[in-house]
Simulated scan of single mutants.
Amino acid sequence: MKKQSLMLSSAVAFAVIAGATAASADTLRLLTWGGYAPEDVVAKFEDMTGHTVEVTKSNNEEMIAKLRATGGGGFDLAQPSQDRIAGPQAEFGIYKPMDMSKIDTSLFIPSMLEATKGNTMVGDAVYGVPHVWGTSGLVVDTAMAGMVKDYTDLCSPDVAGKVSYRLKRPTLIGFAFSMGLDPFAAYGDEAAYTDIMGQVEAKLIECKPGVKTYWGGGDELMGLLRSGEVVASMAWDTGGWKLNADKPDITFVAPAAGALGWVDTFVLPAKGKADDAAYAWINFVMQPEVAAMITAAAGNFTASQGADEFASADLKARYQASFPAEAIDNIKWYPPVPAGLEAIEGGVLDRVKAAK
């Protein structure tokens, strides 16, 4: 019944979108990532609305550069990560505010929508809503390291010599939350952030003897986990699910302190000319059935409420096991990084690496 009702509500929503847009069909110039606008989704949208879609694939750095060079022109909808919105908008004025009355907010996972709205505000205006997301957390061989539930559990004597993580900022952030600290809350206070990072540094140096290796690339880590040399590590959700397909005991675990989340958003470029088409695209791709098509193409889930029900059976099972509702609501979403903090983190990482 749940799936049937979702399909019925989606059909009604599709009809509303089609009726609202058919009278004023425009070309939507979309600046996005690979996999976020697959051909079958574009074709369905064009057939339903009469709009055409021109897709330009890019990345964060290129998106900002293109929009900065034109003062926000050349595109009608773009998809930078949520930490690339407030800063560039305040400095360059390359986006326009979202009209939330034109977005069907019921399609979104509420906690993700609220977090992204908060992280993309400039003044009183919201500049972004969430689309594709992913996390880093723990990948665990549950048969060998079932007691690893949080980042600092990687320091446990039970798994000494068989754990791994990167010497990168996600490790610092994750350990801080696991230690009961809130690094994001200290982003505006350099002294407080320095103190938090000092505590994390001490913890990582204390834990260093139990680390098998600090992994540098995904292929390296996958090999370590497959071979059993490593039984628990910090890593991405998609990597854990990929391993789970080969070795059922290995999977992604959302840490008790919260997985660390990134979000690629929807934003309106300042000089975009097809806002109606942009809003129609957002409401279309956030429909659960369509969102599942994007997940199949991109490999990551979207902020569409209920889209996991339409994913492939295997991926749906892995997602739901890793992310019950409370784990979703506990994700720590990366906010924009203030100037100066990366230098503090770099010093910590250098000292941990050099420690004997």
Rank of each mutant, 00 (worst) to 15 (best):
K149I: 06
L138P: 02
A145Y: 03
M121T: 07
Y127H: 15
L113F: 08
V126Y: 11
G146K: 07
T105E: 04
F108M: 07
V139D: 07
P157K: 13
A145H: 05
L107G: 10
D158V: 05
I85Y: 13
Y151W: 15
V139T: 14
V122L: 11
V132R: 06
E91F: 07
P130V: 01
Q89W: 06
V122P: 04
G128C: 12
I103C: 09
G161Q: 14
M147A: 06
P110V: 02
Q89G: 12
L113P: 00
A115H: 02
M147D: 11
K96I: 01
D124S: 15
T105M: 03
P130T: 09
A125H: 03
Q89T: 11
G161F: 09
V122F: 12
P88S: 11
V122E: 14
M112H: 15
D124V: 05
I103E: 06
G93T: 04
V126K: 04
W133S: 12
P157V: 03
D150W: 02
V132L: 12
V140P: 07
T142L: 03
T135V: 07
S101A: 11
V126S: 04
Y127K: 06
T142C: 03
M100Q: 10
S111V: 02
P157T: 05
G146Q: 05
R84W: 13
G146E: 07
P130E: 05
D104P: 02
I103H: 12
I85F: 10
A115E: 09
G93A: 04
M147F: 03
A125R: 06
A86C: 01
G137S: 06
V126C: 00
V148S: 00
Q89S: 12
P88N: 15
R84H: 04
